[in-house]
């Protein structure tokens, strides 16, 4: 690992400098994570007094339970839809801004601020707009398409609601990175293609999109992590996993099973599975970042 050519010789000082970070990491990150792993192998009795070692039973029961399999399915649908919507919309907007010469900055300002809106607040805003009795969207849907919207009863409506709220909040972030990615593509390449007679759409597919792929891949990983974990607040502020578990994504289920259901063994096993997932995603992200530096 890199250091400086010359270094300071103090023996105790570096430990002192690192102490606050390492103490917080140890107490609030590593210890609870270890506890989660330990509890995932234990079973608590009804009074919470005795723990028995049950091996992998918590995991087996989890993978056998229809609710957990449903949560996996819901998470996959939610994650893929949100990522596609958030990436697609922001790419189109970034391409449009990239054409602008003078007005680009103004548009950018108008598009980036939702980054600052909390996911929970984004959820509440869309919850209000889609309110089945007074909301503006159900009114439009009913009078234009004859569709009776009710996310309190219809599972697919609830899913659409959380996807829209989660994607809306993420657009500004993706947009900024796409704009940066587009600006780093040399204009000479596109000019050469234009001289050779390639139209704007052909140039997009054969030049812009391939050269943008590092940015797209990076954003893909970041967005997957976002939909898997940070969207907890969107779900909790709106559907609370309902109706009929239709939006009960994995992170939300860990919370409900642990705090409402008080099923610690199962909740811990779910935590461990999710940790595995984050570790895989982080490794992918960092391998990629290394590549991007030398790109």
């Amino acid at each position: 690992m890199q250091t400086k050519r010359t270094i300071f010789g103090n023996k105790g000082l570096p430990y002192l400098l690192l102490a606050p970070q390492l103490i917080i990491t140890g107490i609030f990150f590593l210890w609870p994570a270890a506890q989660a792993v330990r509890q995932s192998f234990l079973r608590e009795d009804a009074f919470g007094l005795n723990f028995t070692f049950v091996g992998l039973r918590n995991y087996e029961r989890l993978l056998d339970s229809p609710e957990y399999l449903n949560a996996i399915k819901v998470t996959v649908i939610f994650s893929i839809s949100t990522v596609i919507l958030a990436l697609g919309v922001s790419l189109v907007l970034a391409l449009a801004v990239d054409r602008m010469i003078r007005s680009g900055r103004a548009y950018t300002t108008l598009l980036v601020w939702p980054y600052a809106v909390a996911p929970a607040v984004a959820g509440i805003l869309w919850w209000f707009i889609f309110n089945p009795t007074i909301g503006i969207m159900p009114y439009v849907l009913e009078h234009v398409f004859g569709y009776d919207w009710n996310h309190l009863l219809t599972p697919s409506d609830a899913m659409i609601l959380v996807v829209v709220a989660a994607a809306w909040k993420q657009i500004s972030y993706n947009f900024l990175f796409f704009v940066a990615g587009l600006q780093s593509i040399p204009t000479s390449l596109r000019e050469a293609a234009a001289i050779d007679g390639a139209g704007p759409f052909k140039r997009f597919w054969t030049i812009t999109l391939p050269l943008l792929s590092p940015t797209t891949f990076f954003l893909l990983v970041v967005n997957i992590v976002y939909t898997l974990f940070e969207t907890f607040a969107v779900i909790d502020a709106t559907t609370e996993g309902g109706p009929a578990q239709a939006t009960n994504i994995l992170v939300y289920k860990v919370f409900r099973d642990g705090f409402v259901g008080l099923n610690f063994g199962s909740s811990a096993a779910q935590s461990v599975i999710l940790m595995g997932l984050v570790i895989v995603l982080t490794v992918i992200q960092f391998r990629f970042v290394e590549r991007r530096v030398t790109y």
């Binding site: 107490i27 609030f28 990150f29 590593l30 210890w31 609870p32 994570a33 506890q35 989660a36 509890q39 974990f229 940070e230 907890f232 992170v251 860990v254 919370f255 642990g258 705090f259 610690f264 909740s267 811990a268 935590s271 999710l274 940790m275 984050v278 570790i279 982080t282």
Partner: peptide, 15 residues
């Protein structure tokens, strides 16, 4: 980086 609050809610609360 690999341990967001969301995946270790219950034990963190206990601490």
């Amino acid at each position: 980086l690999m341990l967001p609050v969301e995946v270790r809610i219950v034990p963190t609360f206990e601490v």
